[in-house]
Design a protein around this nucleic acid. Structure first.
Length: 472
RNA sequence: GGCGCGAUAGCAAAGCGGUUAUGCCGCGGCCUGCAAAGCCGUUUAGACCAGUUCGACUCUGGUUCGCGCCUCCA
């Protein structure tokens, strides 16, 4: 029985899908104006893991991860680079796809782009205006009037009073309330814009705000009410709070203070389970663009194998902070090496998992407990120990199959252990020469060869079956 | 200032009111010509102060420290 920590309830809850056997999941994706960093990698890997576990649990999963391809930063960056917005966004969408594929991330079922849903956004904004939740300001911007939605703050646990007290930004004079957020931005010169009926100085010409896109894409693709909504912890407020306000106001019956919207599974509730993953940190500080302390995925992949990075991410619980450093990656590499070493010599395929096996039972219990991948990994290491002792192909098969559920250990052990680095030395020939030296009891020569290889980063391992090698 | 999260051995990271987490590192042994890998054993824990309890790392309260959100952010 799967339990998920639901941010909305602030506790683990038994997962019950809206439709038996099916799961609808929406995750906030990337704004594509630059290369993805490790924080993005965590979101992609974590929710990939979630979708894999749901599918392993026999759910039919519809996983939507959007692409934000219109926003202030994109417009700014395109101007700086002297390229069109679509050139810029396509370039970084391609880069993102490349990075995520390397990390073993299975493509989401659907990857809608914001620009393809602008008409839907105009429609939803109009609905919000009609219902009294939104207004066109004097400058042509359309704002959401947060005080009209009485559930505002239920996800982030903030009240409007607290938020106003903590108000740090200059109040936008066009807003009725400082907490109101923008749904539609009036067009500025040299910016892309779409037509709308919202009026104002530009006759409605403008572009959507950030929050409205997720409300529109999720409801178009998954319906007004769906199972799981995920994203980074930093999106909890204001982004996800605003999504709820938009979607539930547009789809539900909150009206003029008469709160007819309902909770817990009623048709106009937007999402049943909200999931938020923890941050990637550097020196105990959040990795972010604004702090400038970020490492892009491709930079890290120059130095570390992508599977090591995936392993590193999944070795921590998804809600915990994850400190990035070379030392931690080195550690992850050594740990993963142990698992692959156990699989070495076992020509096994990922096969059907015997869920009655005691270790599989443990694995499943861990995963069902709010996706406890660190505990599930511990099972993998215990299995590796069993394989090393018993040399059982069956146990090796179970190890590989369970790891496969996490998207790990699917390469041939030698592909991982020996890598694909260009060979400056003829390793096989040297091993052969050493074998002959050993046979002649010329251990000095044998050790010289071994040392030579070690200096080239190659470790030799003798066994009764012969000598194998791996890279450090 | 408001709201929230956390503090576990040298490092990383889980579960659990009483019984080995797990990985890396260290130490001893087995194996090996010697190593490496592997196996066996082993040293290092639970920020601090109270309380509940037969018994607390685990529950409760407080203190200290760290982090996050309240502004774009995964």
């Amino acid at each position: 029985m799967l339990k998920i920590y639901n941010t909305l309830a602030r506790e683990k809850q038994v997962f019950t899908p809206i439709q038996a056997g099916k799961v609808s999941m929406y995750v906030c994706g990337m704004t594509v104006y630059d290369f993805c960093h490790l924080g993005h990698a965590r979101v992609m890997v974590v929710f990939d893991m979630v979708s894999r576990w749901l599918r392993t649990s026999d759910y039919e999963v519809t996983y939507v991860r959007n692409v934000t391809d219109i926003d202030d930063k994109i417009i700014k960056r395109a101007n700086e680079n002297n390229e069109t917005i679509s050139q810029l966004t396509q370039r970084f969408i391609d880069a993102m796809d490349e990075d995520s594929a390397k990390l073993g991330v299975i493509r989401p079922t659907l990857e809608p782009k914001a620009t393809e849903y602008v008409s839907g956004m105009v429609e939803m904004i109009q609905t919000l205006i009609n219902k009294g939740f939104a207004y066109t300001a004097a400058n042509g911007d359309v704002f959401y009037a947060v005080n009209k939605f009485d559930g505002y703050g239920k996800l982030s646990g903030k009240s409007l009073e607290d938020l106003r007290a903590g108000e740090r930004v200059e109040v936008d004079s066009f807003k009725q309330d400082p907490m109101d957020f923008v749904l539609w931005k009036a067009a500025k010169p040299n910016e892309p814009s779409w037509d709308s009926p919202f009026g104002g100085p530009n006759n409605g010409k403008g572009r959507p705000g950030w929050h409205i896109e997720c409300s529109v894409m999720s409801s178009h693709l998954l319906g007004a009410h769906f199972d799981i909504h995920g994203g980074g912890q930093d999106l909890q407020f204001p982004h996800h709070e605003n999504e709820i306000a938009q979607s539930e106001a547009a789809h539900g019956g909150v009206w003029n203070g008469e709160a007819t919207h309902s909770h817990d599974g009623q048709p106009c509730q937007m999402v049943n389970y909200w999931m938020h993953n923890g941050f990637v940190r550097v020196d105990d500080e959040k990795m972010s663009k604004s702090l400038g302390n970020f490492f892009t995925i491709r930079t890290v992949l120059e130095k570390y194998d992508a599977e090591v990075v995936r392993f590193f991410i999944l070795r921590a619980h998804y809600r915990s902070p994850l400190n990035y450093s070379d030392q931690h990656l080195d550690d992850a590499k050594l740990a993963l090496t142990r698992l692959y070493t156990a699989l070495r010599g076992h020509d096994v395929a990922s096969n059907t998992i015997d869920w009655q096996h005691p270790q599989a039972v443990r694995f499943k219990a861990a995963m069902d407990d709010d996706f406890n991948t660190p505990e599930a990994m511990a099972v993998l290491f215990d299995l590796a120990n069993e394989v090393n002792k018993s040399k059982s192909a069956e146990t090796a098969g179970l190890l590989k199959s369970l790891a496969g559920v996490l998207g790990l250990l699917q390469r041939s052990p030698d592909a991982f252990l020996q890598g694909e680095a260009t060979q400056t030395l003829n390793i096989d020939a040297l091993i052969q020469a050493r074998a002959e030296a050993k046979k002649a009891k010329n251990f000095a020569e044998a050790d010289t060869i071994r040392k030579q290889l070690l200096e080239a980063g190659v470790v030799l391992e003798d066994s009764p079956q012969g000598t194998t090698w791996r890279r450090i």
